[in-house]
């Protein structure tokens, strides 16, 4: 770690990397010092998993077992809900004056945001692995190849990372912790529920189904689901995986520059 850090300082243009690492470290220390943050961010998805498996699951018709259908959706939902914390954390830093301190330092302008979104993505690794574990305990089985599972995992993380940048943009716009908390959820809720996370979209009314089908969350859930369950139509799996990647790149392409712009101007 030390050697890498020293090497990064050799070149001025590498400051953005070393500054980002410093910020990632700072953000991760929070989870070490306050393990309850990590525990609470996992209780919610576990509750959703149990609720849908045992309460609603019996009434939902899918091909195959419901837990196999549900878990990939819950994984995407966990990644997306985790991303909301990015905006909340940023507004906390703003309220405490930390962002002012960072902006008065000669550090790379993008590092505060990159450090936060990367740290939240790392937290998502933990949450997703834990959800995998809980899912396996209640009957989830991977049906696809190991390489497909790894690919699914990568898509999950990148999708959460992309949503972290949306969340960062919202946080920088609202500038207030409580508002960020509310504003972070209100747009995510319809996206998560009007999607294929919990139920097949075929049963929805036409107007909603159209929305649910193009919804990036559905696209990602479907891709992850096919990869994890070993869907036999390889061409369709590849198409959805690519579509998910297009969404991720598109979201990052819009919200990264937007958030960095807002950060530079944040007053």
């Amino acid at each position: 770690m030390e050697a890498i850090y020293r090497a990064l300082l050799e070149k001025k243009w590498m400051y953005v990397v070393s500054d980002t690492l410093t910020m990632v470290e700072r953000n991760l220390i929070r989870y070490v010092r306050l393990p309850q943050l990590l525990i609470f961010s996992t209780i919610q998805p576990v509750m959703f998993l149990l609720l849908f498996t045992y309460v609603f699951g019996g009434a939902i018709r899918v091909t195959g077992s419901y837990i196999d259908y549900l878990l990939p959706g819950i994984l995407v939902q966990s990644a997306v809900f985790g991303a909301i914390q990015t905006g909340v954390g940023l507004t906390e830093d703003m309220a405490k004056g930390l962002i002012d301190r960072f902006r008065s330092l000669p550090m790379a302008r993008a590092a505060v945001l990159a450090g936060r979104t990367l740290a939240d993505t790392m937290r998502n690794i933990f949450v997703i692995l834990l959800m995998f574990g809980v899912g396996s305990l209640i009957g989830f089985r991977i049906g696809g190849s190991v390489s497909d599972a790894v690919l699914a995992f990568a898509i999950l993380l990148l999708f959460g990372f992309a949503f972290s940048w949306i969340s960062a943009t919202i946080g920088l716009l609202v500038k207030n912790v409580e508002t960020a908390q509310v504003a972070g959820f209100i747009w995510v809720f319809p996206l998560v529920f009007a999607s294929s996370v919990f139920v097949p979209v075929e049963t929805m009314p036409d107007w909603l189904r159209v929305f649910a089908e193009i919804n990036p969350i559905s696209v990602t859930v479907n891709a992850v689901r096919m990869l994890l369950l070993g869907y036999t139509d390889a061409a369709e799996t590849a198409r959805l995986a690519w579509l998910a990647v297009v969404w991720i790149v598109g979201i990052l392409g819009v919200f990264m520059p937007l958030a960095i712009r807002l950060y530079r101007r944040a007053a």
Binding site: Y5, Y15, D19, T22, I29, R101
Partner: peptide, 15 residues
């Protein structure tokens, strides 16, 4: 200490 080291690193001082 961590706070001050963090600031030092953001000034790009060697560790």
């Amino acid at each position: 200490r961590e706070n001050l080291i963090m600031v030092g690193r953001l000034y790009h001082m060697p560790m």
